[in-house]
Computed example of a mutant assay.
Amino acid sequence: MCLDNKPHREDNNADDREPADKTTQAISPVTFSDAQRLLQDPSLEIGIDKVELCAPITTVNITPYECDKFTMHQSVATGGSWLLTKELSGGQTIRISAFFRGDATGGSITATFNPSQDGPLLGLDAAQPFLEEAFHEMMDVSAVAVPQEDVRIQRLDLAVDFSPIADMRMFFVAARAVKPRPQWHSVHYAPGSRRGETIYHKAKTVGEVRIYDKSAQAGLSEPTVRFEASLKRRPLKKHGLDTLGNLSEARLRAAFDDLMTPFYPGTTPILGLNDLLEEGVKTRHLAEAIGARLLKECGLDPGYPDARVRQHRKIWNQLGLASTDELHQLGGLAP
């Protein structure tokens, strides 16, 4: 079994970049239960699959003729937006876009790239030179107003590969049985689709988890499945991963574990009050559920219809609380 280590492409292109995982497990081939267990292995280094960086700028150092696409904005004198595609030293494609104002109030620049493009997954140490190079590419075409460590991360995809898979069909049968986190929804693409068999667990404001047939998607000779967590602004801020200067192995691991929890064996996500609100539970529904529980403990009937009562019960179960005393402790409320 190979865990994030050098899946071979059919064209056998040479790539000497270090893969994310530095351990070799003595299990081959891999079943879904193997993958569940190995996901929690602390020696497994998390790979970085895609990054989107953003920073404020004061001026631009590029003419419209050097851009792939340039758009003037009539409402802002001499202002506009542009898109430029370049290549990093490792062969990765980087897309740089910017919006700027012509009235000396500056603008912003965004850079999107995949450090592990066309090669094995790279861990944080191996990806750092490309993150630094991406910052310098942003500096080459604009006057970035913040130092490298303060550049914001707007999206961060973390991933782990498993290969060889014992039985791809049975692997995805087991993966489809995993229930998504509360307030998330799941989407399944059958095998034979353009992207290969894929399972998504999604939440609009949080991010998504993808499990997909990497060998079908990338043309790998060895049957490979990728577990990938895509973090957006809220989870990035929650785990302290919202700037380049805050990146660390421990934080990457904590963020990956947080989104992948449903796929770990024997785990049921228990959420706090803020977690529920972040994942889409309306404040009034949360307040109703708490209020209804308090009234019932006082022997009073809140009088809600059955559908609303079921909704309250679901919220209470997600909080994982047995009594309102635990709620007081959780929220710092006085009994």
Rank of each mutant, 00 (worst) to 15 (best):
G192Q: 10
D242I: 01
M168S: 06
R284D: 15
V144H: 06
C2G: 08
Q117C: 04
L259R: 03
T198C: 11
H312M: 02
M168R: 06
V309G: 00
Q36C: 05
G219R: 08
V187G: 08
T224D: 08
D21V: 08
G245R: 03
F263E: 05
A145W: 08
S323Y: 00
K179Y: 00
P265N: 01
D213P: 09
G123S: 10
Q36T: 02
K237Y: 04
K232H: 13
T58R: 07
I165D: 05
R210P: 01
T63P: 10
A14D: 03
L44S: 14
K204P: 10
M168G: 04
A174S: 09
G119M: 05
P265G: 01
R181T: 09
P262Y: 06
I153R: 03
N61A: 12
I165Y: 05
G79C: 09
S33F: 07
C67V: 10
T110E: 03
D16S: 00
Q311F: 00
E208Y: 07
A307K: 01
P182W: 10
L330G: 07
V173P: 03
E197Y: 04
S221E: 14
P265E: 02
A26D: 09
W316D: 00
L241V: 09
G240C: 12
E137I: 08
Q329G: 11
T78C: 15
F99M: 06
S43P: 07
R251C: 07
R308V: 14
L330M: 15
D140F: 14
I57R: 03
H239K: 10
I57A: 06
S43F: 13
G119D: 05
I94K: 06
V187I: 15
L252D: 09
A35N: 09
D34S: 10
H188M: 06
T224P: 02
G332R: 15
W316A: 01
H201C: 05
L38P: 02
P7K: 03
D325K: 13
D49N: 11
I62V: 15
I94T: 01
D118K: 13
Q25K: 07
L273W: 14
K296T: 13
L3S: 05
P115D: 04
P223C: 11
T267R: 15
D275L: 06
Q117S: 13
A216R: 10
H8R: 09
E197Q: 13
D16K: 00
S221W: 09
E45C: 05
F99V: 12
P56W: 07
F227V: 13
E52D: 07
M139V: 14
K86Q: 14
E249P: 12
